[in-house]
């Protein structure tokens, strides 16, 4: 029954704290940039930072980094589907 604890290396507490600190820093960045009135660029920065933050949560807090390929593929399929839904809708909105 020893094979039950094979993948416990990844549960180091320091990784989680580091993840958390990264997220806080990213939040600080996005709030600061939003205050600088950069116009269109600020929207871009906000979305990019949010995506990075979401990725960090996915990979470390949600353990996706340590999951098998199946989980990763499934996540990409779901995200890809959402992207396609948004993209095709915009073919209507942008050219109306």
């Amino acid at each position: 029954m020893d094979n039950n604890r094979t993948d416990q290396e990844h549960t180091g507490f320091d990784v989680y704290v580091l993840t958390w600190v990264t997220l806080l820093i990213l939040t600080a960045i996005t709030v600061t940039v939003a205050g600088m009135h950069l116009g269109k660029l600020s929207v871009l920065v906000a979305v990019v930072v949010a995506t990075v933050k979401a990725g960090v949560v996915l990979y470390f807090f949600m353990h996706l980094k340590y999951e098998s390929a199946l989980f990763k593929i499934m996540v990409y399929v779901a995200l890809g589907t959402l992207m396609i839904f948004v993209g095709l809708t915009f073919f209507d909105i942008l050219f109306r």
């Binding site: 095709l88 073919f91 209507d92 909105i93 942008l94 050219f95 109306r96």
Partner: peptide
């Protein structure tokens, strides 16, 4: 392909 239900709805011709 969902947009083929909406050809006459007023969506863009590109779509």
């Amino acid at each position: 392909v969902w947009g083929h239900h909406m050809f006459t709805s007023g969506q863009s011709y590109v779509a």
